[in-house]
Design a protein around this nucleic acid. Structure first.
Lengths: 173, 173
DNA sequence: CAATAGTGGTTACAATTGAAACCAATCTTA
DNA sequence: TAAGATTGGTTTCAATTGTAACCACTATTG
């Protein structure tokens, strides 16, 4: 066999605390994996709720959530606010317009831009969804102590910043 | 115009701590949203790394990660271990076989089952990926204190359990 | 030992998503 | 002010994913 497995490029010396056997990986403890499973479970549950009650996808709901707080945004501004991409926004918007949940009006100053807003119907739906969303969040948060909630908040910020770095600086190594 | 937009939906009185105005939702503070953004950032970065170096998708990598630790599993057992679904496993497996990363052999006792294992090549790749994965994890965890890591661990467990409940018991309300 | 139900796994098809090309309008600058 | 570069947004096409139907086999039952 020609596997040259010398100098494991992982372990330095001994690993004080949570050393796994160097050449093995426990998926169920692997943070990226756990985040993914958790996020999918949560998102799927909520997506089901939204679609069952309001026939809304998550991207569409996100657009409404932003427009509810910040009227008169353009699609590009939605991109900034949501971390969703252009195309996703464009599609969500066109569905929402078809449903009469939002309105689109030309910006006379810049005729490329289109100004988006919740319609009356849209605001109505928005106001019914917000409590539902909050209920889900409260339910989730309900499993944590106040302290843990604060911890989680700051931990997420830190992880997010680190992951953002990756995207900027390119891959590790 | 019949929009009854009374009761300013922007400011209530003063905001104690994290009280949002009841009828509004701040997406950037909404846990499901944050989880989703975080998880996507992390997964995408890692997926890029895997695909660039080993031409592996995340599902395929997950299958290998499990087979590396637990040889001789069937596809159904992989489903249990990974929380991925049947079809995803089936597809990942067929790609891995095409790449000669895993082998598939008939189970004579039950001719429906197929026993999967890393091939030599597969184990080779596995052993080179594990450190890479661990590097990503260490880098992420590096932004947290030891204490925070423990907190995160237990918080994730709790949230996961709650989200799991939703799936079992059906939607809220 | 049929007939039926259940399991392991794949296939087929539809819906979702992402990347890149694209159109139209605006900005820059020479 | 014409030429190219940018920006806002949509469309197209390919890849990924999810759902349901499906095939082969095994287990159950009468």
């Amino acid at each position: 066999m020609t596997i040259d497995n010398t100098k494991s490029d992982t372990t330095e010396f001994s690993d004080p605390i949570d050393a796994v056997r160097p050449d093995d990986l426990r998926l169920e403890k692997f943070l990226p994996y756990r985040l993914s499973v958790l996020s999918n479970r949560v998102s799927n549950a909520i997506a089901d709720a939204y679609s069952a009650r309001f026939d809304l996808t998550i991207p569409a709901w996100r657009v409404m959530a932003i427009l509810g707080r910040f009227p008169n945004l353009s699609a590009a501004e939605l991109v900034e606010q949501t971390a969703m991409d252009k195309v996703a926004i464009s599609r969500a918007v066109s569905i929402l317009i078809k449903n009469d949940y939002i309105t689109r009006s030309e910006d006379l100053a810049d005729r490329r831009r289109q100004v988006l807003n919740l319609s009356e119907l849209g605001r109505d739906v928005y106001e019914r969804i917000v409590p539902l969303a909050q209920q889900y969040e409260n339910d989730l948060m309900g499993s944590l102590s106040t302290e843990e909630r604060n911890q989680l908040d700051s931990i997420i910020e830190k992880l997010m910043a680190r992951a953002q770095d990756w995207a900027n600086r390119g891959l590790i190594d």
